[in-house]
Design a protein around this nucleic acid. Structure first.
Lengths: 339, 339
DNA sequence: ATGAAAGCGCTAACAG
DNA sequence: CTGTTAGCGCTTTCAT
């Protein structure tokens, strides 16, 4: 039972039309009535119901943002950037975490459509084309971030994981490393596949054989998984002199395990992570990492969705690829024992 | 121009009432018509407009969440927890970051009221009572988290920063430390004031004089500020043998500075942080820290707001205080050089 | 210069 | 068993 325009009109002694026009400055109203209306608004504490408009002019000024988990600091920063940028354009965002559960994601998508968001930005969990095609059919602007599904007609903004990883592995090779362990994800998402390809190609281009036993999988994004994965790698017959991990925290866990085993970083084992999280510049030793370009990604995603909302046909679906950057720090160094 | 109930009714050859009743199972409809309606829904890709209902039954199933910055990992986890819990009750959340700007916060509050959220959970930036009293007058349930404003009739969930800090300082004292540096916040918020009081009281209760020169301020939550603050402390005439910081990242920055100056942690300087962020268990050395009880806080906040939504008068405004916990790790140890 | 009223999408009371 | 319609809060056209 909140205060409505009727209450204001009654209190101000005018028609609801006049109240509306005063608030929106949509036609001339005498100074006296303007004053009456404004006073009534203040006294009653009236906040116009924006949702009503959505039923007329078809805009809610709300955008859905679906991601695996905003507590992941990189995603959190991405979300914050997106929220900031969109708020400047008067949009709010409804945030949903899938926690890597495709069913949850589907439910969230449904709710968002039901709440008539003006658009959806998503770091998808599901790889099921059908689901997204349904969304696309609604004509609600949809932007994919950080993950691509081939042959889906949708705007996409991704990081070039292939090149990023290729460059990092190449860097290790140039430092003399030949036995490079690789901590892989559990998923079959594009970004994961591309990353592994970067690893393989870098090795092969330098004439180093790819050895499957140097690849180990870690599940999740916690440092315990990183430590476990590193343990497996370090106990191999051919012990790697360098380890690449898909996520900084995994890399940190790996580093921890290396140190706990009495080895030195980078003297005995070099380590490279991914994302460029803030702590990577303050841990000990500082972590070499591939920086995820949060700012660029969020800017592009926002630009596209705003344009798409303004004009759904402003262009064909775009696929924007952003190049990540290798930040060289202390955790990766020359191999100490080149054979 | 999205698909409406009319389109469905036409396609299914029934009235809009029947469509409504089929979708909501609110009255008997023959199997045949149910089937027709469901088919029409599927074929058209119809998503009912939930916002319309909000204008009738006065519920939007949307809750506003305002915090300084979700990219702060602790806040991010809090937000994620809250989102998860509320989603189970069919609520979505609109997230707003104030970035510690009170004006932004005020604008966000306004927008949320305008979008008729069913409630607002806020870690407030502003300390201005007037602003919040206005919100409270609207009767929209409001919950304060992690910050308290005295004499404001509002539900509040906070951490006992006094006790938490008291305990941490006491721990250092028991380890033999007498010169304990304190890195303080820039704000005058309750949690900050309480924290400092905990520091002072712990000292005094142990017969150690509080020395203002051992208190230094850092602005922000980045590790650079922590390093700067630590530098100031370490260059004091009486160099502290321990440093307490209000935030883990500040503590990490301080630790970094200590190491960079050629000192050892904890041998030369012990360090304690606040929040219990994940990286504190994997940095080197592992950080002793006061754990912020994210799970409890979010649970309590959600419980209260849901009850308040269901029944605004279910109880008087509550003030729940949660006790934090000191996690003892390697960054704090016995003083090496007790005089 | 201002008011009356239609209509947005949907639910629920009423009609049959 | 199903359809017709009022009405939620507001904008906007039409009327005066």
């Amino acid at each position: 039972m909140s205060i409505t325009i009727k209450d204001v009109a009654k209190k101000a002694g005018v028609s609801i039309a006049t109240v509306s026009h005063v608030l929106n400055k949509t036609r001339y109203v005498s100074d006296e009535l303007i004053e009456n209306v404004n006073n009534a608004v203040d006294e009653l504490g009236y906040y116009p119901n924006l949702l009503v408009g959505s039923l007329r002019n078809k805009k809610t000024y709300t955008i859905g943002l679906i991601m695996p988990s905003i507590s992941n600091e990189t995603f959190g920063r991405l979300a914050e950037n997106i929220q900031q940028k969109l708020f400047k354009h008067n949009y709010n965002i409804i945030i949903c975490n899938t926690l890597y559960d495709a069913d949850v994601e589907q439910a969230e998508l449904r709710t968002l459509l039901t709440k008539k968001v003006d658009g959806i930005i998503i770091i998808p969990t599901s790889t099921n084309k059908k689901i997204f095609e349904k969304i696309i059919n609604t004509k609600v602007p949809l932007i994919f971030v950080d993950r691509i599904i081939r042959n889906l007609k949708v705007d996409t903004v991704i990081v070039d994981n292939f090149k990023g990883t290729y460059e990092a592995i190449k860097y290790l090779i140039d430092l003399g490393h030949k036995k490079i362990g690789y901590i892989d994800r559990m998923t079959d998402h594009s970004h994961s596949v591309d990353q592994k390809k970067g690893y393989k190609n870098a090795l092969e281009d330098s004439g180093i054989d790819f050895k499957p036993e140097l690849v180990v999988r870690a599940n999740g994004f916690d440092y315990g998984s990183g430590a476990d994965a590193a343990k497996k790698l370090l106990n191999k017959v051919i012990r790697p002199t360098a380890i690449f991990a898909y996520f900084d925290i995994i890399a940190l866990g790996a580093m921890r395990k290396v140190l706990d085993m009495g080895l030195k970083v980078p003297n005995d084992v070099s380590i490279i992570g991914c994302d460029g999280m803030p702590f990577t510049q303050s841990c000990n030793p500082r972590l070499t990492t591939i920086k995820f370009p949060i700012f660029k990604i969020s800017k592009i995603a926002c630009d596209i969705i705003l344009k798409r909302i303004k004009n759904p046909d402003f262009s064909k679906e775009q696929e924007v690829v952003v190049r990540p950057r290798l930040i060289k720090r202390e955790s990766a160094g020359p191999v100490s024992d080149p054979e």
